[in-house]
Every structure is written in C-alpha cells, then in structure tokens.
Nucleic acid binder design. Structure first.
Length: 423
RNA sequence: GCCCCGGUCGUAUAGCCUGGUCUAGUAUGCCGGCCUGUCGAGCCGGAGAACCCGGGUUCAAAUCCCGGCCGGGGCGCCA
C-alpha cells in the first residue's frame, strides 16, 4: 500500500523510543491497521523533526508526515523519515502495560486496559479477526438467502429451559434479558423462511470457566421448508468452512501476529451419533450413562478421539430427547438435533424443531413447563408453520478457535463474567 | 455452589516453606546523562512498593493462623 520514496502520513501511537546519538527511533503502531512504522528522525537531516522526536513520550498519539526512503535499514516496521511530527495527545501517566510487549501483561491487566492493549499487534489481530469472522458469516448467510433480523432482548416470558435468566423491572412488570433468540426466530418461520441474527445472549449462571460468559454473542439462523436436520447441518458446515476460508485468506498479517496456522476443518464434518459417542467414551474408560449430556471430561475425550480420526470439527447427532429442550423434534427416545464440537469445545447446537402445534404443546408438558407461559410463542404454530430448523453458534467460541485462545475473555473486548461489570 | 493455586514498585516477578540480617531483590517501564542506524540496543546515575483488606499468634509478620475481597485454573451448571 506504500511504495518506497513515497510521501506518507502516519497516525498512531508511539510504542517505544530509542535514541542513538543524533538519531531518534520511534516505533509507531498505526491507528487501526496491522502496520508498524519506524520513524527515523536525524538531527543532520531535519533538526526540527529530530527535536520534536526527542521530546516525544512513549504512549503519545502522533501524526507524522514523512517519506519512505528508497533504501531502508530498519528490520521492524515500515521506515519513515519525518518532515513533520505532531504529538496530538500525551499520556498523563505511565501506561498500565507495556505496548512493546517486552514485559508481559496478565489477562486481567489486559482486560482492565483493553484500549491500550489494542496498541499491540496481537491484541489488534484478535479483534480484527473477530470482525472479519462476523462479516464472513454475514456474507455466507446472505449468499444463501438469509435475511438479517433483530429480535427483542427484553422479554416478558420466562425460561425456555436451561440457563437462569437475568430479571429486570419493566415499568413495574417482571421482564428478562433474552437467553437466546430461539423462540422469536422460530415464530418468524411462520412468515419469513430464512433468517439469521447476530446477537448477545444473557445467562445468569454463576459459571466460572474459561469458556462461559454471562454476556456472550451468538450467530443464530433458522430456516423453514426443510426436509430434515441434515439440511441445517449442511448450512452450518458451509458457514464454518466459509469463515475459516475468509480468515485464512484475508487475515494473513493477523494470523502471523498471533502465530496461528489456521487449518480448515476436514469436510464433510464427521457425523457421530450419540450412541457411537458413548461407545467411543466407554472404550476410553469413561463411565457414561445413556441419556445424559456430556460433561467436560467427555467432550475432551471425544475431541481427542475425533482428532485421531483426522476430524477437528464434528457433529454429534441423534441425542436422546431427554437431554434436549422442548422445541426440538422428537423421534422416539431420540431427537432431530445436533451439537457441533471443535476439538472438544462445543461451538453450536441445533436441530429440527417441532412445528406441529399439538406435539409442541405436549413437548412443553413433558419438560414440566406450562404451555400457558408460551402462549405468545405457540400462537405462531397455528397459522401454517412449516417444518423448520436452525442453530445457535457461539461467536466468542468460534473466535477462540480461530485465534487459538484458551480463555473466552481473550476474545471479548470487555467481558461480562460473575465479577466483571466494568469496564 | 465446590476444590486447588495466587494477590509484593506502573507492569511482570523473587522473597514466604525454615518469622528478625527485607531501610523488600530483579527485569522492564519511568526520569536524567553519553552515544549518528537502534530494532528485546548498550553504558552511567536516579526516582518508584511500609508487601490486597480486617483480625489473630509472637519480643518481632511480606513471611505463620482465621475471615473477607479480588485474580488464575478445575468441577458443577451451561452454549
């Protein structure tokens, strides 16, 4: 983007300063790109710029105008010889972490000062990849005819089962923060047959793990007029593959900064039935009871077993209906559902939904819930609801996989967990 | 909710087990100086922490004990 000998204007922050006799070297990171500059100010070349560079403090926001020399000596960053150097803002105090990364920062320190941490290529790479993944997901779903929708996050109805909800006061009435767009995206299937939503999920569980947050983001899709759950899995597989491809081809500098060699998961993704999964686990010495969802030991062991077969990404299908929510279609003791796991980490779950009114009401009763609480939802199933299915994909977890993070907090700018409410 | 670790200059850590010699060490960052190609620059000098909070044991606590708060990890729950 910048040729040698060209005039350039650089905006960014000074990450380190070294002065050698009559030369000052400023390492500047660009405002938003994956680009480092070495600003070389020589007293003999431009005394004014040299003097200005000599006065710069680490962490300052600067605007530099200069020239890229035809021959550069710097081993790091694009070399720029300044003709003008303006400090537009100076730090009031020493930076809370070292942007040159010579002194490491703990995750907690990074989270507390994420905006400063973003002045390192690694931090910046994570969030650029996150943005790219979202864009790629949108592109793919749009290409498949899906329409982006936005459903309410403040809801009057209680739990759809599973996680605990955050309760709030809505002009004197009890309301909840949405744990997922599940019910609403299904209702839409009665009038718009392909929708997706990129949305926060709120869960009031007091979990304390590296893969859960109380506010997380998901990519939800729902499609109608399907002939079976396989269609939904194909869509999700295509989506995941497209995101991997986009990140691999468009985020080379980011992946390099992170030291990540991204491998597109082998296709087609493995379809492993729940019964087969049980067999695999038992053969590995784990005791599992039929009908239960898998715990983290089981997930990890399955991930290892699948990796040995050459699969990073795999679907677990034909779950017992007892382990699934009421809206999933039943098939005897089993269900028309799937989980998508990547190396032992659950990325998504989905399935074909029960679209038949009577069966759906019965399912709600079987789960010990009250159909009256779901009246607003059930109504949509009385006016020609077609067969449909969809999935919820954990965006944060997907980004974890893309950037090879071990803690979900690494890929969320300002994570919300049981302790963190600020910043 | 449970279990295991941890909390010491801005940052990252040593010290803690085997209390005193810790007026708390080191690195990096910071301040001042030298050096015209540094790039984890180098060299010289300097400032910077009464050791998370509260209580206890002791002649004496960063160090031992109890409680709390916070952080990291694991489990449960959950996506």
């Amino acid at each position: 983007m910048t040729g040698k000998g060209e005039r350039v204007r650089v905006v960014g922050w000074v990450n380190s300063i070294r002065s050698v006799g009559g030369i000052v070297f400023l390492e500047v990171i660009d405002g938003y790109r994956m680009q480092l500059y070495t600003v070389v100010a020589k007293r003999s070349e431009n005394p004014e710029a040299w003097r200005a560079a000599s006065d710069v403090k680490t962490g300052s926001a600067v605007v530099v105008e200069g020239v890229v020399p035809s021959k550069t000596i710097s081993r790091r960053g694009l070399e720029v010889h300044p003709t003008r150097l303006e400090v537009v803002s100076e730090p009031e105090e020493v930076l809370p972490l070292d942007p040159s990364e010579k002194t490491p920062a703990l995750l907690d320190t990074i989270i507390e000062h994420r905006y400063v941490a973003l002045r390192t290529l690694k931090q910046r790479a994570i969030f650029r990849i996150r943005a790219l993944a979202v864009k790629a997901a949108r592109d793919y779903l749009e290409s498949q005819g899906f329409v982006e929708v936005h459903t309410p996050k403040i809801c009057g109805a209680g739990a759809e089962g599973g996680a605990t909800l955050f309760q709030l006061d809505y002009f004197g009435r009890r309301a909840f923060l949405a744990q997922s767009p599940q019910l609403y995206k299904q209702m839409l299937m009665c009038g718009l047959s392909r929708v997706y939503e990129i949305t926060p999920y709120f869960r009031a569980e007091k979990f304390n793990t590296v893969r859960h947050l109380n506010e997380s983001w998901g990519i939800d899709a729902e499609m109608a007029f399907i002939s079976g759950v396989e269609e939904v899995m194909k869509l999700l597989e295509g989506l995941i593959s497209h995101v991997f491809e986009a990140v691999k081809s468009k985020a080379e500098p980011e992946l390099r900064a992170l030291g990540v060699k991204l491998q597109k998961p082998r296709r087609p993704f493995k379809r492993l039935t729940y019964d087969e999964a049980i067999e695999v686990l038992r053969s590995r010495g784990l005791e599992v009871e039929w009908g239960q969802d898998f715990g983290s030991d089981e997930e990890r062991a399955l991930g290892e077993a699948m990796a040995e077969e050459g699969y990073d990404a795999y679907f677990i299908v034909d779950y017992p209906w007892s382990a699934k929510p009421f809206y999933i279609m039943r098939r005897g003791e089993l269900s028309e559902s799937f989980d998508l796991d990547y190396r032992g980490l659950e990325l998504a779950s989905g399935g074909q939904r029960e679209h038949r009114y009577r069966e759906l009401v019965e399912n709600i009763r079987l789960k010990g819930l009250n159909p009256e609480d779901f009246a607003f939802y059930l109504k949509a199933f009385r006016y020609g609801m077609p067969p449909h299915g969809g999935f919820g994909l954990g965006l944060d977890r997907l980004v974890m996989v893309l950037v090879n993070a071990r803690n979900i907090r690494e890929v969320v700018l300002f994570p919300r967990d049981t302790q963190r409410l600020t910043p």
